[in-house]
């Protein structure tokens, strides 16, 4: 068996030497954009041969990580405020900021017929899921909507709060909360359950901006350009986002 040792050793060294999962860029992405980002990443890899790694989270949480020095080459935020703030605070040059998508808020339930419109918020239910308003722009939009309808205080005791829009969706999707405010991109194309695409006059537009954080990463810059290309915008629109002109 001694003869096998050098072989195993060299195999190990070879494994360590090949960075099997090296990404050409690491990009922080707001949780609502998860599915779209993955499809965009795959399309981008096919077109350019470059791979992008994504880290998903609530925009506020990603912001905290970035100012603490997280190694992200770009941020796809769920709002316009966070990229602007990063630029103001000198973490990046504001010139790279652009709007890659305009998100829509939806009230969703896995229960058939439960959600018909704003009146469903006054119906019988025990839990309504929203994303943490302080960290997640979709959570802030949900509160804005409830404020506009004058229902925030009435419903406060029924809130269950997801750390980001993905956890919020998961609370609703597992049926633990009967309904919840999630991103339209998360439930687009679902035939089951019931949903109400929230009237866009009830909340400020969810303008989602991107910002480049590292100046020397070509793959990240190329990916941001790809978001604005015909292929990119078509994918983004297919997830129910509007794309800024």
């Amino acid at each position: 068996m001694t003869s096998a040792k050098p072989l195993i050793l060299s195999a190990l060294v070879a494994l360590l030497a090949v960075p099997a999962f090296a990404q050409d860029a690491q990009i922080a992405v707001a949780a609502n954009f998860t599915a779209a980002a993955e499809e965009l990443g795959a399309a981008f890899a096919e077109e350019t041969g470059q791979t992008i790694g994504f880290s998903f989270g609530a925009t506020g949480a990603l912001y905290t990580q970035i100012i603490q020095g997280a190694p992200f080459d770009a941020l796809l935020s769920a709002d316009a405020a966070t990229p602007a703030r990063l630029a103001d605070e000198g973490h990046s040059d504001g010139k790279s900021i652009f709007s890659y998508a305009i998100g829509k808020l939806v009230l969703f339930s896995t229960i058939e017929g439960l959600v018909t419109g704003p009146e469903s918020l006054e119906g019988e239910f025990a839990n309504i899921a929203i994303a943490e308003p302080a960290a997640a722009p979709y959570g802030a939009a949900a509160i804005e909507t409830l404020d506009a309808l004058g229902l925030t205080e009435t419903l406060r005791s029924k809130f269950v709060i997801g750390q980001n829009i993905s956890q919020t969706h998961q609370f609703v999707d597992t049926g633990n909360a009967e309904l919840g405010f999630v991103a339209y991109s998360q439930v687009i194309g679902r035939e089951d359950g019931s949903q109400w695409l929230v009237d866009e006059t009830l909340y400020s537009p969810i303008t989602q901006d991107a910002i480049l954080l590292s100046t020397d990463n070509e793959a990240a810059a190329a990916f941001l350009d790809f978001l604005r290309s015909g292929t990119g915008t078509a994918i983004i629109e297919s997830y129910g986002y509007a794309v800024a002109e």
Binding site: E132, Q163, A177
Partner: peptide, 25 residues
């Protein structure tokens, strides 16, 4: 974190409160 729903006074325990404070700087 996964089953609580972060409800003040009902399921928001201290460890979650710290997490929220950190997230909100």
């Amino acid at each position: 974190m996964m089953i609580g729903g972060n409800i003040p006074g009902r399921t928001k325990v201290l460890s979650i409160a710290i997490f929220d404070y950190v997230e909100q700087l």
